[in-house]
Every structure is written in structure tokens, then in C-alpha cells.
């Protein structure tokens, strides 16, 4: 496989992911201040030498809060996506391999779920389970499952009728070998790409839930929550909204661009 960083979007996406990744892994140690420490003299300031990205209504350093919020925001996105992809792939592969009535029953149920928009679905689940990061993550994962199931199923279906799979069936291979060695390695491409792109959606839905007060709770530094809290002070210090907003956008864009580049490079015919 050629490196996905060769292409222009892949390079930009990779760079953004690097920044986001460093922030997520080392953010708390890089932060110049304690994210909860008040500086009453310098409330609602724009960028300055002391506070690079300005301060909020209590005079807390926005850069420090951003860096502290990075791990929860990014891992929320990745965690929710992994759960959703795992569940969706298992369901989709079962439907695609089993075929006939099993496929029909599973897919009709999935279609029913797909009719509800992701965000509404998530809100519904969070309302039933109650707020908080853990529940929000689970809700996003459940909301992602039907879509991933569909993609996994279509990938499996397009592979299942290939002649190398028929050859394996004709050889008398076990179903486990056929699914695990012949079908899955070739069906993973579209699933991985979709998962990468979905991390960006998960981050945005997580931020939205935080904004609506259903995800992370104050005094958490989750980025969506930061935007929500900043809303009242938007006109006195726009930096409070803009900075976490841009951070969300950059993280989402990084995963999105990288996902696109990954799809191109996973195409075996262009590599090796």
C-alpha cells in the first residue's frame, strides 16, 4: 500500500491529525495554566502574550482549557466510532453472508433505524439513559450501527460473488475461513474509510450533545461544552466561541481528509 500522506489532502489531513493527536495525548502537560484557575483581573480578554488564545468569563486560560479538553473530545469520537463500527460490521457481515430471509429481516430493521436522523436518535437514547460522557458515547455508537451495517453488508455482497470466493467454496473451505480470509480482508477497505470519516461526525455530535448540556457536564473542558458556555459572552469576547469551534472543525476535517486519502491508498491496484 502506498502511503496515504503522498496526496495533498492526505498530507493536510495527516498534519491536522498530528496536531490533534499531540494535543489529545500530551495536552494536559503542555497547558501553561491550570484550566480551572481563575484570573479575575483579565476576564474576557482577547489573545495576548500571557494568554495566547485569550480568557473566558472567569479569566480562565482558553488555551489551557482547550488542551485539557482535547483527550476527552478526541477519545469520545474514536471510542464511539469503534463501538459503532464493530457492532455494525458484525451485523452487516452476518446479513451479507447469511443472505435470504436472515438478510431481509436484519436489513428491514436496519432501514427502520436509518429513517431516524443520527442526532435525533442520539438525543433519544441519551434522554432514556440519562446524560454524561459514557452514555453519550454509547448513544453515538448505537446511532452509527445501522449505517455501518449497511456499508459492511454491501461490501460483503460485492465480494461474495467474486470468483476467488466461489473457488474457496468449491474447494470445500469452512465458512469461518471464507469469511475471515477471503471476504473480510477485501471488504475492510470501505469499512475502514467510512469509520475514519465517521470519527469526525462523532466528534461533532459529541460537541453538539455537550452544547445541549446532555454530554459532558461543567466544569469539564470538553470542546462542545466550551462553545455552549461561551454562547452568553459571544459578543463581549468572540474568541471564546471561535477557538473551540475551530478546534472541533480542524479535528473533524483532519479525520475526514485522512479518511479520503486512506480510501485511495487502500485500493490495492494502485499499490505494491
Amino acid at each position: 500500500m502506498t502511503s496515504p500522506f503522498r496526496s495533498y489532502p492526505g498530507m493536510v489531513g495527516g498534519l491536522l491529525l498530528l496536531i490533534v493527536g499531540v494535543a489529545a495525548l500530551f495536552g494536559p502537560w503542555l497547558a501553561p495554566y491550570d484550566p480551572q484557575q481563575f484570573h479575575p483581573q483579565v476576564r474576557l480578554q482577547g489573545p495576548s502574550a500571557a494568554h495566547w488564545l485569550g480568557t473566558d468569563q472567569f479569566g480562565r486560560d482558553i488555551l489551557s482549557r482547550l488542551l485539557h479538553g482535547a483527550p476527552s473530545t478526541v477519545f469520545f469520537g474514536i471510542g464511539a466510532t469503534l463501538l459503532g463500527v464493530a457492532a455494525g460490521t458484525i451485523i452487516g457481515v452476518i446479513a451479507g453472508v447469511a443472505g435470504r430471509w436472515v438478510d431481509s429481516v436484519i436489513m428491514r430493521i436496519i432501514d427502520g433505524f436509518l429513517a431516524v436522523p443520527d442526532l435525533l436518535f442520539t438525543l433519544l437514547i441519551v434522554t432514556i439513559l440519562g446524560g454524561g460522557m459514557g452514555h453519550a458515547m454509547l448513544a453515538v455508537a448505537v446511532a452509527f450501527t445501522p449505517g455501518m451495517a449497511r456499508i459492511a453488508r454491501s461490501a460483503v455482497l460485492s465480494i461474495r460473488t467474486r470468483e476467488y470466493v466461489l473457488a474457496a467454496v468449491a474447494r470445500g473451505e469452512s465458512s469461518v475461513y471464507i469469511v475471515g480470509r477471503e471476504v473480510m480482508p477485501n471488504a475492510m477497505g470501505p469499512i475502514i474509510v467510512e469509520a475514519t470519516i465517521r470519527v469526525s461526525f462523532a466528534i461533532m455530535i459529541g460537541a453538539t450533545l455537550g452544547f445541549l448540556g446532555l454530554g459532558a457536564q461543567p466544569p469539564s473542558t470538553e470542546w462542545g461544552l466550551m462553545v455552549a458556555e461561551a454562547r452568553q459572552f459571544m459578543f463581549r469576547n468572540p474568541w471564546m466561541v471561535v477557538v473551540p469551534g475551530i478546534a472541533i472543525a480542524l479535528a473533524a476535517m483532519g479525520f475526514n481528509l485522512f479518511g479520503d486519502a486512506l480510501r485511495d491508498s487502500l485500493d490495492v491496484r494502485r499499490s505494491h
Binding site: 470468483e163 476467488y164 466461489l166 473457488a167 477471503e182 480482508p185 477485501n186 490495492v268 491496484r269
Partner: peptide
């Protein structure tokens, strides 16, 4: 099979 392109697993 007929199609050499699809009768071998590309991976």
C-alpha cells in the same frame, strides 16, 4: 473460472 482478474484473492 473464466476471469483471471477475479479468480485470485487480491490480498
Amino acid at each position: 473460472f473464466q476471469h483471471p482478474d477475479s479468480s485470485l484473492n487480491p490480498r
